[in-house]
Amino acid sequence: MAISLDLITGVLSFLFTLMILSYLIGDNPVFRLAVYMFIGITSGYIASIIWWQVLAPRLLMPLLPALLSGSIVEKVIAITPLLGAVFILMKLSPRLSKIASIAMAFLVGAGAAVIIAGALIGTIIPQISATINFFDPQLAAQRNINVIEVLGNGAIILVGVVTSLGYFHFSARQQANGTVRRFFLIEIIAFIGKIFIGTTLGVIFAGVYATALTAFIERISSLINFFGNF
């Protein structure tokens, strides 16, 4: 049974890999068929995962004991998400979609609070502190970094952070001739920021290429292994 499943898996993997690789020639029905099947299967798979890993354990399973033997508070706690789930599903109906906005408001409000706190606590303050602390000689000594390196790399990082933020500063004033330009200092900062942003995006681009290349290699290897195994 296991062998057969592995065989099926290998065959399917081989076929679908070839079907997708056919896109190298150009868009073709085989490629489309593979993509549509992939989307359908993935969606169905995700739906089943949501059912078994979200609705069943978090919504339905707590509901029955709460309704049978729970207190009013427990019942409310158990029923409330069910009510919200019904509201969310009403979004599928254009006639009832307005009711879904209640549950959506709940989601948006909670999400807004979470991202506020997360951005403030998890990124802004730590990253600003890290940028400043990079010049701390004690910390540098703990990391076995000499002062020159600290000052040099710290300056680069500082300039990179400031100029990158300046690059995203889009406020501008209107000139006498009607043209809109940013402040001169901001223009200089933004120009330098372009260098850092470009460099960062170049690194990310290389990383994406490395990831894609790894996936490509893995797929080619799987094809070779498929032929090697059979």
Partner: peptide
Amino acid sequence: VILNGIILPVESTLMGLLT
């Protein structure tokens, strides 16, 4: 099997085409 035979190969191949 569905995951390893269809979902993962298709996505990985698409990612490989990105190269």
